[in-house]
């Protein structure tokens, strides 16, 4: 069938049904606090790496939870693991372990 009418621009929407939740599931299994984020942004505000680059830990977390994992490897590589985000997080998220497990999940999927 030929394309006709107004179809939604691909990539514009979060395609929840077809997204990849493998990283999200892996991280949540090993660090349940991963999904407690309320998006206050303190982590990004204090983030050492976010001062020099467009790294945004809040967004990385959220995107993985939505299954939007494209380019996540390059993003998470910017983290220095200094732990400031963990100190400011009002929800008590174990942010450093979230980062570790995201990296673990990525390397696992590469190994497969």
């Amino acid at each position: 069938m030929k394309e006709w009418g107004y179809s939604i621009l691909k990539g514009r929407q979060i395609d929840f049904e077809n997204n990849d939740f493998s990283i999200s599931r892996f991280v949540e299994l090993h660090e349940p606090s991963f999904s407690w984020c309320i998006g206050c942004g303190s982590c990004t505000a204090t983030c050492s790496a976010a001062k020099f680059t467009d790294f945004n830990p809040r967004k990385v977390n959220l995107l993985i939870q939505r299954g939007e994992i494209k380019g996540i490897e390059d993003e998470i590589a910017k983290c220095m693991l200094c732990g400031k985000c963990q100190l400011v997080c009002p929800r008590g998220i174990n942010t450093r372990n979230v980062v570790q497990n995201i990296k673990r999940a990525i390397s696992k999927s590469y190994a497969l």
């Binding site: 998006g39 206050c40 942004g41 303190s42 982590c43 990004t44 505000a45 204090t46 983030c47 976010a50 001062k51 467009d54 945004n56 809040r58 967004k59």
Partner: peptide
């Protein structure tokens, strides 16, 4: 003050 302007997605 340092915060993230979360609605624009950038530190402010």
């Amino acid at each position: 003050l340092k915060a993230e302007d979360t609605l624009s997605g950038r530190p402010i």
